[in-house]
Design a protein around this nucleic acid. Structure first.
Lengths: 132, 132
DNA sequence: AGTGGAATTGGACCAGGTCTAAAATGAGGC
DNA sequence: GCCTCATTTTAGACCTGGTCCAATTCCACT
C-alpha cells in the first residue's frame, strides 16, 4: 500500500492524499487510461478530488517520468504506466489500446496482428528535445 | 497544374474549386501541416475557403487515403502527405516534425539523432481496424 | 498557535474541431 | 438554355478536453 508513496518519494514528488489516491488508481499495473477514466475511478474510490487536480497531477507525473502520454486521436490522451520506449496496438474501431511486447514487431507486425484486425498504418514518433 | 485534379479523380473525389485549392497547397511535396496552416495558406492564395470546408476536406482526403493524420500532442493534428507507413522525428521544444527515411531507424535512432537533441521517448502506434 | 509556501479547488476560459441549417453550386435531363 | 436535385460550401453556434486563475486549504516548520 505504501509502494505508491515510495514511488512518489523516489520521483521527488511531495505525497499528498490526492496524489496518493491518483497513484493508487494508476500504479496497480500496466494500463492505459484517459484523464476522465482516472478522474472517475479516483472519485468513486476516494471522493474528493477535483478535475483540475487530476490534470495537474497527471502532468506532474508525466514530467517526472512516472507516466507517458499517448496521443492516438485528437480528442483524448491516454496515460500509460509503462514508461519504457515501447509499441502500442490501437484499434481504430473499438478505441482499445494495448501494449505490444515483441521487440521485433516492426518487422513482423503484419503477420502478428490479432485475428480479425487489418493493418491501417504504422506511425513511429521518436520524441526528442533540445535540452534535458 | 492538373495533377491535383488527377489525384482527386483517382481517389474518387469529386473535384471542386475548394478541394483543388486545398490540394494544391498540400500536394506540392512531402510536408507536415496543421489544419490552421493549411487554412492560412489556402486563404492567402485563393481567398474564399471557410474553415469548415478545410476540415471537411482534410477528413475526406484522410478517409480516401491521400493524407495521414499524425497526433503528437493534444492540441493539434498534423496532416502528412506521405501516406506510407513511416517514422517521424518530433522536436518537443520547437514543435518541428520531420520524416525519417532510415528503414532501420528503430535500431539506430539513439545514434542518429540530430546534433543537439536528446532522446525523450519512442512511441510506435500500429493502427488496426476490424474491417475494411 | 502562527506563518509562508505549496497544493487544491471550482469555475471561468480557451482552442481545436464538429454540427447544423441555410445558401450556393453544378451535372444531367429536358 | 434552364429546371431539378443532390452535393458542397458556408457562417456561426456548439461541444469538449484541457488550461488558467484567484481564492482557499493544507501542512511543515518554528
Amino acid at each position: 500500500m505504501d509502494s505508491v508513496r515510495q514511488l512518489l518519494d523516489s520521483a521527488g514528488i511531495y505525497a499528498t492524499p490526492q496524489r496518493l489516491a491518483i497513484g493508487e488508481v494508476l500504479f496497480v499495473g500496466p494500463q492505459h487510461l484517459t484523464a476522465d477514466e482516472i478522474y472517475d475511478r479516483v472519485r468513486s474510490r476516494n471522493g474528493g478530488v477535483s478535475r483540475a487536480t487530476v490534470y495537474n497531477t497527471l502532468n506532474l507525473f508525466t514530467e517526472k517520468g512516472l507516466l507517458r502520454e499517448i496521443f492516438v486521436d485528437a480528442a483524448c490522451a491516454f496515460y500509460d504506466t509503462n514508461t519504457r520506449p515501447h509499441y502500442h496496438l490501437y484499434n481504430v474501431d473499438t478505441g482499445e489500446l494495448q501494449d505490444m511486447e515483441d521487440d521485433h514487431i516492426l518487422e513482423h507486425f503484419a503477420r502478428s496482428l490479432p485475428a480479425g484486425t487489418r493493418l491501417k498504418g504504422v506511425d513511429v514518433v521518436v520524441r526528442v528535445g533540445n535540452h534535458g
